[in-house]
Design a protein around this nucleic acid. Sequence first.
DNA 1: CGATCTTACGGGATTCGTAAACATA
DNA 2: TATGTTTACGAATCCCGTAAGATCG
Lengths: 314, 314
Amino acid sequence: MNVSTRQLQAFIALTEQRSFTRAAALCHLSQPAFSALIAQLEEALGIRLFDRSTRHVEPTAEGREFEISARRVLTEFDAALAGVSDQLARRRGRVSIALLPSLAAGWLPQVLQAYSTRYPGIEIEVADVLSEACVDRVRSGRADFALAAIRADTPELQAEPFCSDGFHLVCPAGHPLTRLAEVEPQDVAAYPFIHMARTSSVRQYLDAALHPLQMQTLMEVEQLATAMGMVRAGLGISLMPALTLFHFAHPGLVIRPLHWAGLTRQIYLVRRRDRSLSLAAQSLYEQVLADPPETANAASTGGPADEGEMRAAY
Amino acid sequence: MNVSTRQLQAFIALTEQRSFTRAAALCHLSQPAFSALIAQLEEALGIRLFDRSTRHVEPTAEGREFEISARRVLTEFDAALAGVSDQLARRRGRVSIALLPSLAAGWLPQVLQAYSTRYPGIEIEVADVLSEACVDRVRSGRADFALAAIRADTPELQAEPFCSDGFHLVCPAGHPLTRLAEVEPQDVAAYPFIHMARTSSVRQYLDAALHPLQMQTLMEVEQLATAMGMVRAGLGISLMPALTLFHFAHPGLVIRPLHWAGLTRQIYLVRRRDRSLSLAAQSLYEQVLADPPETANAASTGGPADEGEMRAAY
DNA sequence: CGATCTTACGGGATTCGTAAACATA
DNA sequence: TATGTTTACGAATCCCGTAAGATCG
């Protein structure tokens, strides 16, 4: 025979009320049903918990001893339920997101601002790493989901397009290229070029888009900020996707949107297929979808006037 | 909807086995019934606890969080059941007995010796007080039951005869009374008498039995040991019930049984009517009934030869 | 005699196990 | 295709509430 929490609650109610009738009402039960509940508990435990006459109900010595145990059980029980309730209400939880450094620095803060204001109790872990590492973290379970430039659509992982990220020319103010109405690939190839490392998605998109063309690669750097410094110093020019442009918002630099076929970096929302998102992760996921970055693509729907103001925008 | 301990046990089994089939076997359930149990728990909590495919079962983030709460609940639950089991097995408990000082010193030790050897985990409280106080303690609930010389048969209390306690003459060796074949009340009245205090049951029995007779009361004392000292010093004689005679087992003293009508102290086993005995108390109660004192009455069934050896017996 | 707990009993909900359907590696 | 979970369904059980019975003050 089994002991249920309802029996414990009934037991506690009876120790407090010392009346079957009142305790039954408290438990929203008829008095006989309540009586049966107590009888079952006594039988299951094998001890008499109450001395009762028609006029008096009182716990036995064993009943008083059992009361403290029963209260502890119910306390833990309520705490467990409260814990679930906290998670449901997003008062507590943890979410881990992996995403490209550019997104992490430029766009994520505004998303997390809204998110953590709404759900102050949730711990957030951000992994600002390159696409490969992003996907690895999702695969291993260290991240709930990722924003990366790899279409990682494997049996294990699910990737859906999140946003596209148009490339821009970045060069010092007064550079000859700024005088052209439209910049073409061969124009760019004529000047010393600052590349990102080969592992970066920016580089991989560029290599693919410019493939036959011979570039004047002056150097490869790891960090966007370094590339910016090089360009500003007049060492070379570069092509960067819109989401990175906040790094290049300097008076001495000019940013010009490009419209080359195939040169649009795709950002994907990557998650595991077999594992559901935690409630906290689900909420952030929705926040992310509701608040996508305003990419160059979105800007390019406007006229040339808008594009000319990119310098001010970043 | 209600959450039951069976559901928690099923949940824990599934987190450990990571297979509905194996976990169901562990819970002695068919696999569909087990599946329903998990589904009910998830519905009751309002969260998905497991990500499952036909090939893989794994707790969600919420499931892992809930696991620690659930384990705590079940730990407390098991502890509560173990506590009951301990009480049932008399591995733990407490009993409080109130009884006359004479019984407490002379007879109780052998009873408690057997009792505490058998049930080493049980705490024992002994109140060695006079009959009035014994009954008070039972009435107030401070003692589980009592052995006293008052027939306290009220609506509240139940008293059953426990043993009878025949009176004996106590006098110095060589005292004139020792030369009589049979000592009668008027013989005793001829010598200085050492009385117990008026509140004692010994005194009350004596007063009732000797009523019209004029005694030579030399003094009244509280403690039996004091009375013994007085008699041994030759200050007077006394009459004492058998259960007190261990105090008077001295070479310089002689003890002679009496057979006066009405002069037999009755000891009663007193307990509350409305309150059941705790398991520990019940066990001691049975031990007490199984091991009654060997009173003078029992001895008086033997011949005079036995009686003459009383000096050696105590 | 009145208040209160226990027992009796019929209806309804829950739960179980078997069998079939379904899904995934 | 084989293994393992879910769904379907009939049967047994459990649980509840009403009503009658018992008991103590």
